[in-house]
Amino acid sequence: MTFALDLASWVCILLGSFFVVVGAVGLVRMPEVFTRMHAASVIDTLGVGFLVLGMALQAGLSLITLKLLFLLALFVFTGPVVTHALAQACLQDGIAPMLDADRRADRAAAEQTEGRRS
């Protein structure tokens, strides 16, 4: 039983490490600021999530696990706030995102002809 728990926590920690590194690689590889945010959010969600899960499995049922869960909840609730604030600040500062397709105008027109059926 303890071996199975150990194995599960190792797998979680390895996966978490993998996603952390992948997110950081994306942070360097992506061409501009909006796409970099997507890479950073991989770290904030899966990387941190798996690492915390792995450490919680190691700690077992204890105060440490509760603290780790608080840490995870902190990331889940504050991560989007920071990302959203950052994206909004970029737009307000006049940084235009590099786009393949801008579907905003199309969508607005489609909704007008479609009416508000929803």
Partner: peptide
């Protein structure tokens, strides 16, 4: 230690 090393690598990239 593996996790710490991975985080350090990611820190360097960031």
């Amino acid at each position: 230690a593996v996790a710490a090393a991975a985080i350090l690598v990611a820190l360097a990239l960031a």
